[in-house]
């Protein structure tokens, strides 16, 4: 299991479009992917789950990946956050 803390850097936060991008990316990997905000942990392969987190600008999230391709999954998802979902 690998995990990484990230902060949301795009102004709009995670709305439907970024959520869909995350899910599409997460579904490419075999590993289970989770997001954690405060004490809520949700499945990273579910759009509704990610939107439920209500992650706005500057929220800190923890990405957790567990499985055969966990390192790769974690890196590419973190990269998606860093590039602000190609938004700004």
């Amino acid at each position: 299991m690998v995990e990484k803390k990230i902060t949301i850097k795009n102004r709009a936060g995670i709305h439907a479009r970024p959520a869909a991008m995350i899910v599409q990316l997460a579904n490419k990997f075999e590993s289970d992917i989770y997001f954690e905000k405060d004490n809520d942990r949700i499945n990273g392969k579910s759009i509704m789950g990610i939107i439920t987190l209500g992650a706005g600008y500057n929220t800190t999230l923890k990405i957790i990946a567990e499985g055969t391709d966990e390192e790769e999954a974690l890196a590419s998802i973190a990269k998606l956050f860093e590039t602000k979902f190609e938004e700004e």
């Binding site: 439907a16 509704m48 939107i51 439920t52 209500g54």
Partner: peptide, 16 residues
């Protein structure tokens, strides 16, 4: 879990 999401569903191929 969230009132905003309400009774929306996500269906692959259809969207929300």
């Amino acid at each position: 879990a969230n009132k905003v999401i309400g009774h929306h569903m996500e269906i692959r191929g259809l969207g929300i």
